[in-house]
Design a protein around this nucleic acid. Structure first.
Length: 574
RNA sequence: GCGCCUGUAGCUCAACUGGAUAGAGCGCUUGGCUACGGACCAGGAGGUUCUGGGUUCAAAUCCUAGCAGGCGCGCCA
């Protein structure tokens, strides 16, 4: 329980015991009542909207009610020492000294888990799932990091998380990919020219794969594509997945499970999934309407199996079969999600790129249909990444063909910077990623700024010749925090709230934003010492005030927890 | 034509999901360091929250009608 929940419970209890005296008949489970962090200028610890909510329901003027509540709270809740009524009826509350210390105490007790929202659910997060036809590009990185960090966050809260990669190793694209490798082998080994065909993959990495395969299979003859196909497919996929895994590893990302589309086909999972959906009458034979607004010369009207996804909010029903009767990509995906459902996850998460926006409704529909709406699924779409260098757009990559590869990125920028920056925006907005900015060791670079705060804290600890979290005595010491320290402590109290809302909404960008703000407060405090010697932390190798030691340790705890979730390193020295 | 996302300071973005005087960074501008690490800090200017209606104590946030940009919209994967 975080302090906001804790004190809100106190408030609710008091209200319930006094509701008759107050003429409060309509309480309604306190819906909408909350404790928040007051805006900076108020210098209070908590802010409560209860007078406005209950006032409205019971037709009492909010300010009038607030005045009455103020008296009662101060009398009944010993943790509150001061209350001010502000604005339309907000109650700003200052905590008593002992309440403050109790709250701080629990932070030190929880330490590595401070901020976590206790939860015990099972999650499957599918992310990256880049086609194994080539290395990862920058766009994939964003989703990859997002998925990885989401997993960290959910685990931090105590959930069981499986990180999964769906390998699309089946279908037309793979055929062209293997064909491209084949022609590169022809080129390298037999000196035949690489043909100019539209569907082939031009990227130079194909050459690398080809020469590796040649090297590892010296006695093998590659002279008949159809005959060589299965072998080449296996080898090529192995190689390109190695490339992808290497990129992921360099980004600090691991998956627990790689699920192959070919396996779905081989095990005939589609038939099983369709059977289930047919029984539920969500799949039927029928005709689809041609898409509107498009010329549809190629449209072939024919009877086929259709998933009635409109029943679950999709814009159109979806084809499960192609013209030749074979399964569509979507059909395989339905089967894949049936498999996920059968593995008994309570929650599924799909992290997708912007080019898959149109796909989310049908996959949600499929999961709802397959699980009778029991399994929750959330599809998170990450918008595009735009690359900049020196402020101007930056394009092309030699190795990957038309995209900038993850490797290109990693060659220029460290993993830590990439991870932090990719998360420093809401996934709903396009992200400008500037190579140069990210490499700077200045305030312009938020990663550096946060790391620097931690390094400075450690520098203090070093000069005191102690370790972090040492020499703090909360039981016997009396503390007298100054206003800057109070401000920082308030920010520290906010941390569980950040985790709470982030865990609910999956808006991961709040974490880097928060860490940056916390670091700002610290740097600001530190610099006070330059203006005024009274504010210096250390004098004659000793800490001046135990309050400072306490506060910087609190900051260290939160920075550690936050950066651990982000998977970004936090060095003691820089 | 349809769906999803976006529209907030000159630029890039926040805003506790309906709360208080809409906040940060960059840029502009004025100051502060021989330091516990200046790789920083403090101050100032800068806003009709795309537009019009609506909902209520309260709207950037919700509803509605538009406008603008991005991404999609097969029986590709």
């Amino acid at each position: 329980m975080n302090i906001f929940e804790y004190h809100l419970t106190e408030i609710k209890e008091v209200i319930l015991s006094k509701k008759n005296n107050l003429n409060l008949n309509e309480i309604n489970d306190f819906k909408g009542v909350s404790l928040e962090v007051p805006p900076d200028q108020f210098n209070y610890d908590l802010s409560c909207n209860i007078a406005m909510i209950l006032g409205k329901k019971n037709k009492i003027r909010p300010k009038e009610l607030a005045l009455k509540l103020k008296v009662i709270f101060l009398e009944k809740i010993s943790n509150f020492s001061l209350i001010e009524i502000a604005g339309p009826g907000f109650m700003n509350i200052k905590l008593s000294n002992s309440a403050l210390l109790n709250n701080i105490n629990s932070i030190f007790k929880n330490k590595k888990f401070y901020g976590s929202v206790k939860d015990n659910k099972t999650y499957n997060i599918e992310f990256v799932s880049a086609n194994p036809t080539g290395p990862m590009h920058v766009g994939h990185c964003r989703g990859a990091i997002y998925g990885d960090v989401l997993a960290n966050l959910l685990k931090f809260n105590g959930n069981k998380v499986t990180k999964e990669y769906y390998v699309n190793d089946y279908g037309e694209q793979i055929k062209f990919f293997v064909e491209s490798v084949y022609f590169r082998i022809q080129e390298i080994k037999y000196n035949k020219k690489f043909p100019k065909q539209e569907n082939l993959y031009p990227g130079l990495y194909i050459k690398d794969i080809a020469s590796k395969i040649i090297h590892e299979n010296k006695d093998f003859t590659f002279n008949d594509f159809t005959k060589n196909f299965e072998f080449l497919k296996k080898e090529s996929l192995k190689k390109s997945m190695e490339l992808i895994k290497k990129d992921l590893k360099n980004l600090g990302i691991t998956h627990d499970n790689f699920f192959s589309e070919t396996e779905i086909v081989n095990k005939d999972l589609v038939t099983k999934a369709i059977k289930i959906l047919k029984e539920k009458r969500f799949v039927e034979e029928g005709f689809l309407q041609p898409p509107k607004g498009e010329t549809n010369d190629n449209w072939k009207k024919m009877k086929r199996l259709i998933f009635k996804s409109t029943l679950f909010g999709d814009d159109a029903d979806r084809a499960l079969q192609k013209n030749d009767g074979s399964w569509t990509y979507f059909a395989n995906d339905v089967a894949y999600h049936m498999n996920k459902v059968s593995r008994n996850y309570e929650n599924l998460v799909n992290v997708l790129g912007a080019d898959h926006t149109g796909y989310t409704k049908r996959i949600k529909a499929a999961v709802s249909a397959l699980s009778d709406k029991k399994v929750k699924i959330k599809c998170v779409v990450c918008q595009l990444v735009k690359l900049f260098k020196n402020g101007s757009p930056f394009k092309m990559s030699k190795r990957a063909g038309e995209f900038i590869s993850a490797q290109d990125l990693l060659n220029e920028v460290e993993k830590d910077q990439i991870r932090f920056m990719m998360l420093n925006r809401s996934n709903d907005v396009e992200l400008d990623f500037d190579f140069d900015k990210v490499k700077q060791k200045t305030k312009d670079n938020p990663v550096f700024y946060v790391q620097y705060a931690y390094a400075r804290i450690n520098s203090i600890i070093r000069s005191l010749n102690i370790n972090l979290f040492e020499k703090i005595n909360l039981k016997e010491d009396k503390f007298n925090f100054n206003s800057i320290e109070e401000k920082i402590i308030r920010k520290i109290f906010e941390w569980p709230k950040i985790i709470e809302s982030t865990s609910k909404k999956f808006d991961l960008h709040k974490i880097p934003f928060y860490l940056y703000e916390l670091s700002t407060l610290f740097h600001s405090y530190w610099s006070k010492g330059n203006e005024n010697k009274d504010y210096k932390f250390i004098e004659n190798d000793k800490i001046k005030r135990k309050e400072i030691l306490l506060v910087i340790n609190l900051i260290a705890i939160v920075l550690q927890n936050g950066m651990r979730i982000l998977g970004v390193s936090l060095p003691d020295k820089m």
